[in-house]
């Protein structure tokens, strides 16, 4: 059966695997919301300042509204590494579909095509497009070949619980090693009984059950982590 995942793996020509996690409508809605709040806040202040110039100020203000609506996202996306303020807030980033950073061309296209995604007045086309595409792309994204992805928020150095280092009885694959390390990292957040259940699954490897099994798995994590 098919297993649904949020991670899309892309292999670069250099043979490096990139893991992109496309962002769906909820996160993007709030990023858009924050961006609009920022833009209109700025326009409000600019408007207050421009009233001093009378009708000329009004004209300038309308020009400013136009520029802010159409070019604010472009400037921030290209100069801010694919992140407008709202996207920064929600840990989002715009990339090309092959994982490269976005440039002027794609950014301009995807933002000018908001006029299509905005149809018929409340972003219905964009929302439907996001719901229908596997990588949550609106029309502008599809045309520009871009993707909005989730980014890892502040990664913290892992803290492993103290344990006597213990060499595993056989060579482990990379995936298995990282699972054992992850178990040790997260053991503080698991209940004791759940920890034992999980460690019991590894009974064939540790040769013990219950609390002893947990201790053995933690020891292996310590060993894999570099403790000797």
């Amino acid at each position: 059966m098919q297993s649904v995942d949020t991670v899309r793996t892309i292999e670069t020509p250099e043979g490096i695997e990139l893991h992109l996690r496309p962002a769906g409508p909820v996160a993007r809605f709030w990023a858009f919301f924050v961006d609009q709040a920022v833009v209109w806040m700025g326009l409000m202040f600019a408007g207050i300042a421009l009233t001093f110039l009378g009708p000329l100020g009004l004209g300038l203000w309308f020009i400013l509204v136009f520029l802010a609506q159409w070019l604010y996202p472009v400037f921030f996306e290209v100069l801010g590494g694919g992140r407008t303020l709202g996207k920064r807030w929600l840990n989002l980033r715009v990339l090309r579909t092959d994982g490269r950073p976005i440039g002027w061309g794609p950014s301009l296209i995807r933002n000018l095509l908001r006029i299509v995604d905005g149809l018929p007045g409340a972003y219905t086309v964009g929302l439907v497009s996001i719901l229908l595409t596997r990588d949550f792309q609106r029309i502008g994204d599809i045309v520009a070949g871009t993707l909005v992805v989730h980014e890892e928020a502040g990664v913290q150095a892992p803290v492993l619980p103290a344990a006597e280092p213990l060499a595993p009885a056989l060579a482990l694959t990379l995936e298995e090693q990282s699972a054992i390390l992850a178990f040790a990292e997260r053991s503080a957040g698991l209940t004791a009984s759940r920890s034992e259940e999980l460690a019991d699954v590894l009974g064939p490897l540790t040769g013990s059950r219950g609390a002893g099994g947990v201790k053995a798995v933690l020891g292996m994590a310590r060993y894999l982590w570099g403790g000797r």
Binding site: M1, S3, V4, D5, T6, A23, L90
Partner: peptide, 25 residues
Amino acid sequence: GAMGFIPRTRAAMEAADLGLSLLQA
């Protein structure tokens, strides 16, 4: 292999998108 989704420790917003992916499937 019998789970219909791949469990990972995701950030909350990404988890909400997992739901949408499930819905799409």
